[in-house]
């Protein structure tokens, strides 16, 4: 049984570290990307089961990363959870427009993130064979 792979895209290394600890604790395999370009490369080469994507990223921002993936037949099925700071309503509306599947507002409770991921991945941490 292979664990489901989650790509975490977040430029704050320490926050990424905390998310990684929680996701690994929950039983997922975690991949890390610190900028938009890296995220796109890893999404295309590593074929993750889900992407946790921050909005503000170096090189290519989260919206663009999401749009590029969602407009690509090959990757559009990968669920995207966006991490946003709830400063403006338009963040969220724009996010849905580019095809994000869920939103989590910072500061978030890790339980919420885990619950959202579980919902989008259909509950199991393992890939079905």
């Amino acid at each position: 049984m292979t664990k489901k792979k989650i790509l975490v895209v977040e430029d704050e290394a320490e926050l990424t570290g905390a998310i990684q600890i929680r996701l690994e604790q929950a039983g997922y395999e975690v991949l890390i990307a610190y900028d938009g370009q890296d995220a796109l490369e890893k999404a295309r080469t590593e074929n993750p089961d889900l992407i946790v994507l921050d909005l503000m990223l170096p090189k290519i921002d989260g919206y663009k990363v999401c749009r590029m993936l969602k407009f690509d037949e090959k990757y559009k099925k990968i669920p995207v959870v966006m991490l946003t700071a709830r400063a403006q309503e338009k963040d969220e509306n724009l996010g849905y427009e580019v095809g994000a599947d869920a939103f989590i507002t910072k500061p978030f409770k890790y339980q919420v993130l885990l619950a959202k991921i579980a919902e989008l991945l259909g509950g199991s941490v393992f890939k079905s064979l």
């Binding site: 320490e14 600890i21 700071a85 403006q88």
Partner: peptide, 21 residues
Amino acid sequence: VSTVSHELRTPLTIMKEYASI
């Protein structure tokens, strides 16, 4: 407002996450 809130929230989220870990 948007920038400041993002800037404040990120460290807060990190603190919160590690404290809960």
